[in-house]
Write a protein that binds this DNA or RNA. Structure first.
Lengths: 342, 342
DNA sequence: GATTAGCACTCCACCTAAATGAGTGCTAAC
DNA sequence: GTTAGCACTCATTTAGGTGGAGTGCTAATC
């Protein structure tokens, strides 16, 4: 069967209406509220076809139709194209300059949640590709060395190292030199075991303590930025009856709290394609607790290599247009902000 | 009317039973499951008295009784005294050494939530009373200075300062000396405007840039550690039907996510008294969304002056004994851990 | 006087039946 | 191809009915 123009229009009307009301939509409604000038009976015939083709379905006999995942997918893929949306006024909030990445991200998540009325999540940009800019060891106390590592993009890592033996000022100076010469300019992924053992060898004489320190520094650099995902607006799920029942809500909220599963969502981008915006409908999402949700994710980029992902989780009948629009705006805003004071 | 021993026993029985079942408890149940050997009729009379006195109440005529807030309060105050509880096995998890405060706290919250099946929150220890141990400025890039401040307890703060003019190595060295001499050993609260202007005066010649840097460092030190509250197990509220209905759940989850209100809970301790453990029943809590909950908080201390608060939020019929016991254990564990490698 | 058995009463929780109504599929007419 | 009409379906709502848990009161008993 062919999905002709009239069918398309009817499908569109069904989905639009369902997005608004969340209720199954019947033939009469469509007949009245479209400019097709068709009777409900005709619509019924068409709807029967659409159902057969898998775009819509009936929750039960004698109920109206609701879009199937396939229907949503069609809607998202074709009907939503290239509609540039109004620029959302989140600039001021974001532009209040904040130095800590963590706070910026948390705020973005929050603003986004308030703006869209959906649950949001955002992952901190991965710095794997980024280069070490500066390394420094300082003695802060007896037996305690502070290691500070600054990476491009001004991401700072610290670590307090406990050393058994005391290090002389001289040794410390040498170590600093050694670390900087060897590490500066390298991307974190380039710092591997071979490098480290080479450095240990160079350190030579001071062997023990030094290698201990180097190990610790290497650890600090490599230490996985454990699941830096920020979420907000989780309680928005209660706005949508289809997600708000106890079991689903509990599961979802747990997912958002645990964050582990969210990683799959955010690191799933087949990079670049489609301006980095992805839509997962229902079971398309890799997270099982979101089987009744839709998820829209967008990749953002700060300078080179620093990329993270923003996600919006809502009911399947989410306002795809608005969400995609908002995410696009946000992408460019983030870009601007970090270009201004990277 | 007097709250004699028999009434006390009956009240206790009513509360115990209700804690277990969550259902109103009737006279017959009490008559059967206590060693009082009284008929249900007698119990009924006593219960009528207890109701008149305000310790219990009926959800509706011809339902059993449930404890009132006053009843819970009585229970918590008197019946729960000095019961030392089994030591909970969270040691191993906690003892997996983690350097970042943030991670330790998040993990404590999580373990606690899993252990108790309630929602938990924990505030990072305030370091206001703590002394500056080490300050260092380093140049990481042109026009960018990294300021690292280490405070007692090895809490580290960094800040990247953007300076307009270039600082010479020499100036930087001098500044470091100046900052360290002036700031080391001072508690953060002692660093005030007067101090800062005095330092600026000392810096003298380099005036402009230097004072800019000093201001930034002062800012970094003072910068409020915005609401460092970690939460876990919020979805546990779905375990308790009396909290799980949509409106309440949504409100609660929002409170946990927003965190602002939680501060009132955690900073409410009339210090020291009662080993730092506080119980808020229903409306006793300063957070309105918790009117149907009970909250137990415990203050913990790491070394001197560093104190934070742990809280557990559950239904009014929470297992007060267990919660208080667990919190006590945790208090001492945290103490141990930070004594070992503070 | 305290305790208890008994009984009438209350009211929630649960069930069932009927009414409602939105929506469908089919058929016959246009 | 389109439409009006009608019988049919089925979730939802409403109303009535029943059972049971629990109470309060009273009168009998210890």
């Amino acid at each position: 069967m062919e999905l002709d123009e009239r069918k398309t229009k009817i499908l569109q009307a069904v989905i639009r209406n369902y997005l608004e009301t969340g209720e199954p939509v019947g033939s009469r409604t469509i007949s009245k509220y479209t400019d097709l000038n068709l009777s409900s009976a005709t619509i019924r015939n068409e709807m029967a076809d659409l159902e057969e083709m898998g775009y819509i379905l009936q929750p039960h006999t004698s109920a109206g139709r609701i879009p199937s995942d396939k229907g949503y997918r069609f809607y998202v893929d074709t009907m939503m194209e290239a509609k540039e949306r109004e620029v959302v006024e989140m600039k001021e909030m974001l532009l209040e300059r904040q130095d800590k990445m963590e706070q910026v991200l948390q705020r973005v998540a929050k603003v986004l949640a308030q703006n869209t009325q959906y649950a949001t999540l955002i992952s901190a940009p991965k710095m794997t590709g980024n280069k070490v800019k500066f390394v420094q060891l300082s003695r802060v106390d007896e037996g305690q060395i502070l290691a500070v590592i600054v990476v491009e993009g001004n991401v700072i890592k610290n670590n307090i190292l406990n050393v058994r033996e005391e290090l002389s000022d001289e040794t410390l100076l040498k170590l600093n030199l050694l670390l900087n010469t060897n590490l500066t300019g390298l991307s974190i992924s380039e710092i591997n075991l071979g490098m480290i053992s080479a450095m240990k060898q160079q350190a030579g004489i001071h062997s023990d303590i030094v290698s201990e320190v180097i190990d610790a520094v290497a650890d600090a650099i490599k230490a996985e930025e454990d699941l830096e995902i920020y979420t907000s607006g989780t309680n928005n799920i209660f706005r949508y009856p289809e997600l708000a029942d106890q079991e689903k809500a509990s599961e979802l909220i747990n997912t958002f709290e645990e964050k582990v599963q969210l990683e799959n969502l955010l690191n799933n981008d087949p990079d670049g394609e489609n301006t980095g915006i992805q839509v997962y409908i229902g079971n398309e999402s890799p997270v099982s607790s979101m089987r009744d949700c839709s998820v829209v994710t967008a990749t953002y980029e700060l300078g080179d290599g620093m990329r993270g992902t923003i996600g919006i989780v809502g009911p399947k009948r989410m306002d795809y247009d608005k969400v995609v629009g908002t995410l696009k705006t946000l992408q460019s805003k983030l870009d601007e902000i970090y270009k201004d004071h990277g």
